[in-house]
Computed example of a mutant assay.
Amino acid sequence: MKTTIQIQNLKCGGCAKTITDKLSGLNGINEIRIEEETSSVIFEHENSDVVFVAKDKLRALGYPAIDDENGILQKAKSYVSCASGKFKNN
């Protein structure tokens, strides 16, 4: 199955790198693609339970789904995740 999750706080390739790295470590998620233009995370999975795990991981990184709360803490986490992704690219 393929799932698309539209997220908040996606700013750049650093964010995308962090999201891809962290989601690829989850069991049952494959072929992760990030579309910066639409702030979407797209991935293949075998069962629907992993979608909830992915949403929780995204929220923990500072990239909540579009229908989740996006407070100052989430935004701060996303800046840290973004910087981490940028650092790993270099």
Rank of each mutant, 00 (worst) to 15 (best):
C12T: 00
G13D: 06
A76F: 09
I42E: 01
Q6R: 13
L26W: 06
G28H: 03
N47I: 02
A54T: 03
V80P: 04
S40E: 13
N9P: 07
T18I: 06
S24D: 10
E35Y: 04
K86R: 15
E44A: 08
L73T: 13
K22L: 08
M1Q: 06
Q6V: 14
N90P: 11
E31A: 13
C15R: 01
P64A: 11
V53I: 15
L61Y: 04
T38S: 11
S48A: 12
I29G: 02
A76H: 09
I34Q: 04
Q8W: 08
C15E: 01
N9T: 03
K86C: 15
N9Y: 00
L23I: 02
D56R: 14
E35L: 07
E31Q: 14
E69M: 13
E31C: 10
E46V: 05
S78R: 07
E69P: 12
I7E: 02
G71C: 08
G13R: 06
N70Q: 12
T20W: 01
I5Y: 00
E69F: 12
N47V: 00
H45L: 03
Q6E: 14
S81Q: 07
N89P: 09
I72Q: 12
S84P: 06
G14M: 02
E44N: 10
Y63I: 03
D21K: 09
S39L: 05
D49T: 11
I29W: 01
Q74L: 14
D21L: 02
N90I: 15
G25D: 14
T38D: 08
S84L: 13
I42K: 07
A60N: 10
A16D: 01
T38A: 00
S48W: 05
G14T: 01
G62F: 01
F52A: 15
M1I: 04
E46G: 08
E69W: 11
A83W: 10
D67G: 09
N90L: 15
E46R: 02
K57C: 15
N47L: 04
D68T: 03
F87L: 15
K75C: 03
A65G: 12
I32T: 07
I5E: 06
I42M: 05
G25A: 13
V41K: 01
C82F: 05
H45G: 00
I66T: 13
I34P: 00
V41A: 04
M1N: 08
S78E: 08
I29S: 04
D68V: 04
M1V: 04
C12R: 07
C15H: 04
L58Q: 04
G13W: 05
F43K: 02
A60H: 06
F43Y: 07
A65H: 12
E36D: 11
A60V: 04
S84W: 13
L73P: 10
